[in-house]
């Protein structure tokens, strides 16, 4: 009875089956094309660059949960990358303080959007230029070096599970637990669904939105650190494409642009899927010039499939 109820709850989670199936199919196709991928080393190399995308997707998901959208997460990752490759290496205390300050800035951005009833799409677009400008100030030309410990973490080979899968599992589980299972997480998702209902429950909408944005900032910092560990250096323009990749990952993972419908596990799967889209083409020997079109195509396919399913249900 309890197991059945749990199974039903899992099945009811917005479209988790679809991204999971897509991920496994793509992985299977790549392994079929190149069997050596199906090894500890192969998966580590293939999925390595999913790590920053996973955190970027989770950051984007926190903002989308509030019914907003974040157009600045990519440049934000660049900024974290530049700080991590310079200050965090030379003056760890100052570096950590700067990263904590960035999380606070994200929370303040949430407060601004709430208090002035500004459209998040405009505020975060403006912020994206601020992040980029700060990143160039911190590191005008590409260079710097990741702290040794960070590079070591990124190169760490954990037992049993390749690092990218382990990171995806842990980050996804933590986000699931906080946002989907936790008592306050329900309130946070509620503001994306019906803010007035949450306010009439006596909750502070300001505090809820600030919490979500702070969580986004924290995930963005983790994503920037993961990127730094992989690249072992800093570059002010390196994160640009994560804005669109993160949005696509959330949507492919079963999230919706409006209404607070999100899925942390889906966002993690979405990040893997967006990465594998490019790899799959490469392994199938299709020109990489198709990669952007393929990623866009997958997004449209997912949305179309979802619309069809919804119509079927209605």
């Amino acid at each position: 009875m309890a197991a059945e109820a749990r199974a039903r709850r899992l099945a009811l989670r917005p479209g988790l089956a679809l991204p999971a199936l897509a991920f496994l199919l793509m992985l299977g196709a790549i392994i079929a094309a190149e069997p050596r991928v199906a090894s500890y080393f192969g998966l580590t190399v293939l999925l390595g660059f999913a790590m920053p995308a996973i955190f970027a997707a989770l950051a984007q998901m926190a903002v989308i949960a509030a019914g907003d959208i974040d157009l600045g997460i990519g440049p934000f990752l660049s900024l974290v990358n530049c700080i991590a490759a310079t200050w965090l290496t030379d003056r760890p205390a100052a570096g950590l303080a700067a990263l904590a300050g960035l999380v606070a800035l994200y929370a303040a951005m949430g407060a601004l959007i709430h208090a002035r009833a500004l459209p998040a799409i405009v505020v975060t677009l403006g912020a994206s230029f601020v992040w980029l400008g700060l990143a160039i100030l911190v590191l005008p030309t590409p260079g710097g070096a990741a702290p040794a410990w960070l590079a070591a973490v990124a190169a760490w080979r954990p037992p049993l599970l390749p690092l990218p899968l382990l990171v995806g599992l842990l980050a996804g589980a933590a986000a699931e637990w906080l946002l989907m299972r936790g008592a306050y997480g329900v309130v946070l998702r509620g503001i994306g669904g019906n803010p007035r209902a949450v306010a009439r429950g006596g909750w502070s909408l300001l505090r809820a939105r600030m919490s979500l944005y702070a969580a986004a900032g924290l995930a963005g910092v983790l994503g920037g650190l993961a990127l730094t560990g992989l690249d072992t250096s800093g570059d002010a323009t390196v994160g640009g494409q994560y804005t669109l990749v993160s949005i696509a990952a959330v949507i492919v993972g079963g999230g919706e642009f409006t209404g607070g419908v999100v899925s942390p596990a889906g966002a993690v799967l979405g990040a893997f899927i967006m990465l594998l889209t490019g790899s799959l083409l490469s392994f199938l020997d299709v020109s990489t010039d198709w990669q952007l079109s393929a990623q866009g195509g997958i997004l449209i396919l997912v949305l179309a499939a979802r619309a069809l399913r919804r119509r079927g249900r209605a």
Binding site: G190, A197, G201, G259
Partner: peptide, 24 residues
């Protein structure tokens, strides 16, 4: 309320949580 005060993206039980701070 006349216009419903439920969050459509949450489950029935989760909507109870919105109203009851004690459910934590």
């Amino acid at each position: 309320f006349q216009e419903l005060s439920l969050c459509p993206n949450l489950t029935v039980a989760e909507n109870a949580r919105i109203m009851h701070p004690a459910l934590s």
